[in-house]
Design a protein around this nucleic acid. Sequence first.
DNA 1: ATGCGGGATGTTTACGCAAACATCGGCGAT
DNA 2: ATCGCCGATGTTTGCGTAAACATCCCGCAT
Lengths: 338, 338
Amino acid sequence: MADVARLAGVSSQTVSRVSNGYAGVTEETRRQVLAAMKELGYRPNSAARALKRGEFRTIGVITFTLATTGNVRTLEAIATSAASEGYAVTLLPVAVPTQDEVRGAFSRLEELAVDAVIVIMEVHLLDAASLTLPPHVQVVVVDSDAGDTHTVVDTDQAGGSRAAVRHLLDLGHDTVWHLAGPEGSFAAQRRTDAWRRTLTEAGRTPPPLVRGDWSAESGYRAGLELAAREECTAVFAANDQMALGLLRALHERGRRVPEDVSVIGFDDIAEAGSFLPPLTTVHQDFAEVGRQCVRAVLRKMRAAGPERGTTLVPTRLVTRASTAPPPARETGRETGRR
Amino acid sequence: MADVARLAGVSSQTVSRVSNGYAGVTEETRRQVLAAMKELGYRPNSAARALKRGEFRTIGVITFTLATTGNVRTLEAIATSAASEGYAVTLLPVAVPTQDEVRGAFSRLEELAVDAVIVIMEVHLLDAASLTLPPHVQVVVVDSDAGDTHTVVDTDQAGGSRAAVRHLLDLGHDTVWHLAGPEGSFAAQRRTDAWRRTLTEAGRTPPPLVRGDWSAESGYRAGLELAAREECTAVFAANDQMALGLLRALHERGRRVPEDVSVIGFDDIAEAGSFLPPLTTVHQDFAEVGRQCVRAVLRKMRAAGPERGTTLVPTRLVTRASTAPPPARETGRETGRR
DNA sequence: ATGCGGGATGTTTACGCAAACATCGGCGAT
DNA sequence: ATCGCCGATGTTTGCGTAAACATCCCGCAT
């Protein structure tokens, strides 16, 4: 910086003013400084800047495995929208979802240059660990229900699930089966809860729960079970990958989709439109979730107050070919229904 | 830090020594300092540390979309292995693969606190942009062939493709069709080159190239074409997603896999084992690629010299149910072949 | 002509840490 | 007993920047 100042014939403070875009510098001077910067290849040192300013302009993101579409797309959206706000994103992967691992990530984080943290995981793993966080570091959480202790941003799981179930009921199905995600996941739990509530509110009896683990393979296994049940005409799968496995199992067992069984997914992954048949599913707006996370975290940083509450990002039902009215009953009576 | 020193009754320098784990501090003193740190909730300020040490202990990763399995898994491995070396990872997403965008990412990077950069993209987009990089920032590239101008780490695309083609030839197929990735991709290009070379070396005539764009949908479209060709008994798809679409198309057209047509993929994505039938594919060790990237970049940082060259990470053929010997010929002669 | 106000620029200082150097004290060799 | 050496600790200094304050100069009102 001193070199630039010398070359431009000004003081280092003027260089600083130029590099930070302050007003009060003559156009003439500014040009000279910029020229000098360019000639010397000057780059402001961000460490010194951070030291002086007391902020790093960096957001840390803690997440489990990047193996799930949702996490990845949320991360990507966070990175993009953070960048547009002039913030960088530092990634903290947690290998295994144990409290110890999470605690480890947070303790690494303490040493790290971040102004705020976005956590993409369930909060109960976090609670024991987060206590050691520096007080000024704000936290926003995705995929959790801890709205009372943290700021939470998430897809409107309940709304999406309700839309999915309603869609199937509206088509005339008596009830809707549910292929749930793993027990440990709050997202899965909320989808299941909403499924059950929607059915109950509509006066239907929720059939037994079938559980998978998000993977296509687990969907396939569950599908083999469901295919054996004649009375099952509509299935709401908690994500698209399980729906994929489900479709395969049904196809293998000779149950046609959507003629015999309707299938609806959740997520709207890129491939969903290419499934056989193309999958009706609940579209999640991950980009919006990421944007909201960044917005929330920046707001918290600026407001300083430990703002709480939950932001829900709406979903959208994407109707494709995998859902249709139920097959005609053996007894003709139902034709007259509704 | 001064407060800690005061509380512990030592100088701030001793606090520094303790917090950096230097030898030459009495066990007694160390304990007192640690106690004081804990009591005051002291965290070393990483900006000041970086300023003093002249390094950030951070690696920047530039990548296009995180929509592809490969990029994501490489990124994850990089983050994990960087963490184990005490480095953080800062993510720089590039929305659109244009030189302008890349240049933009690099200029953001210049302002950023990173000691090195790992680029997950093709290098020709990078060349025009990279010139403006600070000289001390080392670069390692994935998915590129620019081994002469940059350090490159990548999966052994050629070896994997050769193994795939050989596997099919060894099963007795006369030749192997290829469902290639998009023209712009070096990875795709190298897989295609190796496919063609392997066939030629084996004295076979490469059939016409069929091109997709990595997506399942494109694989499906290509599959419809291939299904129409009676003489096609073996297909090497350049990735698993296209193989998925291919399988669907073949199934739809009544061509059985593997009885009528053998299919082999590339990547070994999580779902590959659940395809119908389970997909024989070339396993990429993304974790190893990530590790090697970090290793290479750290080595370059320490060596200071602009080391070049390519590190290839070997692949492994995973044999599942989608490949088998070709159907018996109409003319019985071939039984005696070999 | 004199003084005053304000915009443009320069000077000083501190951010928090750790390297380099300085100091102190105890122990063994003579 | 004296000296020297070495390990433990303290003191000084500067990393690059930007806020705060100081200075300068120009133009305008009196």
